[in-house]
């Protein structure tokens, strides 16, 4: 009997059951910085860059919200790739949690890219969707590929199997990005030319990279939120499993 008690204590001490604490101070600060940075971006867009540039007009302003979607999306997809590789090498669930969180945020950035792109298309070409635009197309195809990753999460029931399949798919999805990009860039129907050289003014370049940084702060806050949440859920699940095991052992 005392041996069973020792087992229970041992099992219990492997990890405390996580409390339902609110967001940490660090996280709140992170979000505040993100909001301030975005406010700063709006301020720059209103005051610093020219309101209109020749041949493009004012609709180009959406570019400062569009471009970060592309860069940050790619960055988080890169994270998904790296975390998936790490998971397959180590089989540690923490990498799967990181991969899943990165995929969700990457997908969000991808959607922002698509929605702003589509809005821009409406302003520039008077159509929400332009099949012949290679940027819209590759963003859409990439979003479909990574949507598959998110769908896999609920499709596989057994957790260890889910992690394995997701990691493989995550790697595959990332490897596909250059394929998507080049095949559509090189072989799409001739697209509407975008006059990017008109946007090489110093103020525009500065604001564009500031926008990437500002959104990166926001996306990393979201990543952190997702990661903390999945970590907590898994801890709770583990704690429940421990309780079930203890229960069985005391019955036996």
């Amino acid at each position: 009997m005392s041996q069973t008690a020792a087992h229970i204590a041992d099992d219990w001490n492997k990890g405390a059951i996580p409390g339902m604490t609110g967001p940490s101070r660090g996280f709140v600060a992170h979000v505040l910085v993100a909001l301030t940075a975005l406010f700063g971006l709006n301020w720059l867009v209103v005051t610093y860059v020219p309101f209109e540039i020749k041949m493009i007009g004012s609709s180009y302003l959406i570019f400062f919200y569009h471009f970060p979607g592309a860069i940050n999306g790619a960055l988080f997809y890169l994270g998904l790739f790296a975390f998936s590789v790490a998971y397959l090498r180590t089989k540690k669930p923490v990498w799967d949690r990181r991969a899943r969180s990165a995929a969700a945020v990457g997908f969000l950035a991808n959607m922002v890219l698509l929605v702003t792109g589509s809005t821009w298309a409406k302003a520039a070409w008077n159509a929400w969707w332009v099949w012949s635009d290679p940027r819209l197309m590759s963003a859409a195809v990439a979003s479909l590929i990574f949507l598959g990753y998110l769908m896999l999460q609920s499709a596989v029931e057994e957790p260890a199997r889910r992690r394995q399949i997701s990691a493989v798919y995550g790697i595959l999805a990332f490897v596909n990005i250059p394929v998507v990009h080049f095949s559509i860039q090189w072989f799409g129907q001739t697209s509407h030319p975008m006059k990017f050289d008109a946007m090489s003014a110093e103020s525009i370049v500065h604001t564009r990279w500031y926008a990437v940084a500002a959104f990166l702060v926001l996306y990393s806050a979201l990543y952190r939120w997702r990661y903390d949440r999945t970590t907590r859920n898994e801890r709770v699940e583990e704690a429940l499993n421990r309780i079930r095991r203890i229960e069985e052992r005391t019955h036996a």
């Binding site: 195809v141 949507l147 598959g148 769908m151 595959l172 596909n176 559509i184 072989f187």
Partner: peptide, 19 residues
Amino acid sequence: MLRILLFPMLLPILNVTVE
């Protein structure tokens, strides 16, 4: 699920091969 995962990955090469 196979089709949902597979088809988007094939869009790029289909784009080329159809041409």
